[in-house]
Design a protein around this nucleic acid. Structure first.
Lengths: 351, 351
DNA sequence: GATCGCTGGTAAACTGTTTTACTAAAACGG
DNA sequence: CCGTTTTAGTAAAACAGTTTACCAGCGATC
């Protein structure tokens, strides 16, 4: 038994054909080989337990058949539902098209050395996803307008021309506004995300306020409080809103965690969420269905965002989309999930 | 400007040396090149913005400088603190030694096609980690006794000879037993994990019961209830224990989630955890410090398990450990974290 | 003064694949 | 029967590195 694995040459020798023939058979697209020959070669492969080397395969056309996912260097980035779902979606789409996923963390050193550029330049990877990117990540400007196959997942930036795929946050804002107005709410509070860093968060708020206005409900800026997507912050924000308008009948939070924080605040103020005050969240995290009352929310399909952005990036890489033209933009659909927490305004006895 | 990137040949030409010389300089270990030459070459690299291709580099010696992490196809494997911490540890250790991390999910098709073998055979990867592996994953026997660079993280198997690194669960069991006995507890319940699937879980229980026995406390099998590591299950298990011995004064759960479940059960039975019944968990998940009362627990450093297993695997790959000999085994240290939930037995007024 | 060993470097073979350009033989059309 | 396609296949040049074996020049040794 030979120490080293069989190569394409061994297969060629074993089946008495040229190595070109074997290669052609390997890349099934080419139909120039007769069936008998093909069979002979396939059998030889079988006998020799031949597996083509990815490394060698990538060399001639500089393709690694691998994509990288770059996540920010947060405490437990890998242990977060949000990132987890996006990565799962990317993985799924990549796997079905024969690509692998490389994991990279944007540590300080990593960014300083511009490793995300090296990654592409040294042929380790055919494209990169950036997840959890915010306007704070100034170094993204390195990629501004470049034709490198790079995709921002679930955010975008006015200042840099980059490809992105994100949930349809404007639509999410409109859905929440419509629902609250339909239920008769007029005195509404909104807990928004950090609009200066996260463009999608700004969109959401803008669309929400805009649609309310269209339907005749004016939401003053005093009834919009900003928070950084955490439960505790949601609680504080809601405290603030209640202080500003004790008579509010509904709250829309930009993510579920803050909505859950709002629950806590409401209870602390003797209000029952879903009875005294309607609450709508956004994201539909697994926990949303388990709260008491179950949280009505806008479902953002993060898995889908991951999968969609992956398909788009692969299309660019494989030349199915003209990458040289404009940056690629796409929004994935969102939907309203009605659970117990959004009651009618009419039923509320005003304070 | 040339369309394609600079290659090692371009650098050689630019600096007037042979390509061998450039290669030697690239692989810094070789000191045969004089300093002036080295400088000249380095400057040429700089001028040409040269980045060596990983693909081409790996080809001659069949090294991808990449490791794969294989996770089970669970609902949200990537969104779990446990996996997240291990992966972070692996990532850290791999990055400092110049290796990349590939993510793989052990889906049904993936396993059927033995892709984890292909991965190594096609030179995509130099080694593989299996995390979340249990005895249910029968296909692990494919690797039994093989000299492939494969590492089981935080579990092991009697039936298969495989490399593994895991937390020192026996020590964890002894620490918990000692602590409870020291505090005067004699009537103790234990919620264990699925011992038939997870060997480390069996070890933990065995060591816990063994040490109790050594110290004169007999824990009958009726006071050991098995559960699958979830909060709800912990609650049910604790209900069961309370039914079997309403006078128990302490509970040791094999993981923190189940300990938190036990809290719920205790409260439902009018017992206050940390006051009426001592509770010790295991893992030290982030949430453990935030429960009321804060959970005393055995700290298992999952990040460290990941990092340690990675260092070991790399040593094997790089030949620093004789891989042909025995499978590699190592246990990483654990420690007791004392918080509010483990009270003295003496203070408890027996029911 | 021939031999030895060291220093600094090079030529050429090798890794395992893809791809382009070519050819021999068979089939076909008029 | 001759020229043209078509079919089935091949040789050789990439791809971008590593590695082995070798060599010229030089000072030291005997």
């Amino acid at each position: 038994m030979a120490k080293s694995r069989a190569s394409i040459r061994d297969v060629a020798r074993e089946s008495g054909v040229s190595l070109t023939t074997v290669s052609l058979i390997l890349n099934k697209n080419d139909q120039r080989i007769s069936d008998p020959t093909r069979q002979r070669v396939l059998q030889a492969m079988e006998r020799l337990a031949y597996t083509p080397s990815r490394l060698a395969r990538g060399l001639p056309n500089r393709r690694a058949n691998t994509l990288a996912v770059l996540v920010p260097a947060l405490q437990n980035a890998f242990a977060d539902v949000y990132f987890g779902e996006i990565i799962s979606g990317i993985y799924e789409a990549a796997a079905t098209r024969g690509y692998r996923i490389l994991l990279e963390v944007a540590r300080r050193e990593y960014v300083r050395r511009k490793e995300y550029i090296t990654l592409l330049d040294d042929c380790s990877v055919d494209g990169i996803f950036f997840i959890g990117a915010t306007a704070e990540h100034r170094w993204l400007k390195d990629l501004d307008g470049s034709d490198r196959p790079v995709m921002i997942v679930n955010n975008h930036f006015k200042q840099w021309a980059l490809n992105w795929v994100a949930c349809d946050y404007p639509q999410a804002g409109r859905l929440a506004a419509d629902r609250l107005v339909d239920l008769g709410h007029r005195r509404i509070g909104h807990i928004c995300g950090p609009s200066d860093l996260v463009e999608t968060s700004r969109e959401l708020t803008e669309a929400f306020v805009g649609r309310l206005a269209e339907r005749g409900v004016r939401l003053g800026s005093s009834m919009i409080v900003e928070g950084k997507f955490l439960v505790d912050i949601g609680k504080l924000a809601c405290d603030e809103l209640l202080a500003r308008d004790p008579g509010l009948t509904a709250i829309f939070a930009s993510n579920d965690k803050m909505a859950i924080g709002a629950y806590q605040s409401l209870r602390a103020h003797g209000r029952q969420p879903g009875v005294d005050v309607a609450v709508i969240g956004c994201d539909d995290i697994p926990n949303a269905a388990l709260t008491e009352p179950p949280l009505s929310t806008i479902r953002l399909n993060f898995f889908e965002v991951g999968a969609t952005s992956c398909r788009a990036l692969l299309d660019m890489i494989e030349g199915k989309i003209d990458a040289d033209s404009k940056p690629y933009h796409e929004r994935t659909p969102v939907s309203m999930v009605t659970r117990g927490s959004c009651c009618e305004a009419a039923s509320i006895v005003s304070a």
